[in-house]
Deep mutational scan, measured.
Amino acid sequence: MTTFKLIINGKTLKGEITIEAVDAAEAEKIFKQYANDNGIDGEWTYDDATKTFTVTE
């Protein structure tokens, strides 16, 4: 398992979430479901060097 981080730069929600996932594809699926569940819709980026996803509304 690898640790992945999501940085949320939303209009109403900001913060960071860290999860353990098998790979970046699994982490992205989990993070996008979390964002969808919380009404966050924005532009996604991923930095493989730091294993960090960012979503900006």
Rank of each mutant, 00 (worst) to 15 (best):
Y46G: 04
K32H: 03
E57F: 03
G39K: 05
G15F: 05
E28W: 10
T52P: 00
T45I: 08
T12V: 14
E57K: 00
Q33H: 08
I8Y: 15
T54V: 05
N38M: 08
A49T: 10
Y34Q: 07
I8W: 07
G15V: 14
A27D: 00
K11Q: 06
A27M: 01
I40N: 01
Q33Y: 08
G39F: 08
E20R: 05
N9F: 07
T12W: 12
T52W: 08
I17W: 10
A27C: 01
A35E: 05
E26D: 06
T56P: 01
I7M: 02
A24D: 14
F31Y: 09
L13G: 02
N9H: 12
T54N: 04
E28K: 05
A49N: 07
I30E: 14
K29V: 15
A24S: 06
A25I: 15
G10W: 06
T2P: 05
A35L: 06
L6T: 02
L6M: 04
D37A: 11
G10K: 10
T45F: 07
I40V: 10
T50Y: 10
D47G: 13
I8N: 04
G42V: 00
D23E: 13
E20C: 02
T45P: 00
T50G: 07
K11A: 13
D48N: 13
K29Q: 10
M1S: 14
Q33W: 10
E26L: 07
Q33L: 10
N38R: 13
G42Q: 00
A25N: 02
F4S: 01
F31I: 07
V22P: 09
T12I: 12
K51N: 03
D47L: 12
N38V: 14
I30M: 10
E28N: 08
A21Q: 09
T56D: 08
K5W: 01
A25Q: 12
M1C: 02
E16D: 12
I17C: 02
D41P: 13
A21K: 10
A27H: 00
I8F: 10
W44N: 00
F53N: 01
T56F: 08
K11N: 14
T12N: 15
F4G: 00
F53S: 04
Y46V: 15
L13V: 04
L13Y: 09
G10I: 13
L6N: 06
E57V: 02
Y46L: 07
D48E: 05
K11L: 11
A25T: 09
A27V: 12
A49W: 10
T45C: 02
K32D: 07
N36A: 14
T52H: 15
T56K: 08
T50A: 10
E26H: 13
K14N: 15
L6H: 01
T52E: 14
A21M: 15
I40Q: 05
E43I: 12
I40K: 01
D47P: 03
A24K: 08
D23T: 03
E16N: 04
K51D: 03
E57Q: 03
K5P: 01
I7Q: 06
K32V: 09
K51R: 15
E57M: 02
D48G: 08
G10Q: 10
G10S: 07
D37M: 09
A49M: 08
E43P: 10
E28I: 11
T3S: 06
T3Y: 01
M1P: 14
I8C: 02
D41C: 02
T12R: 03
K14I: 07
F31P: 00
Y34G: 02
G42D: 06
F4K: 00
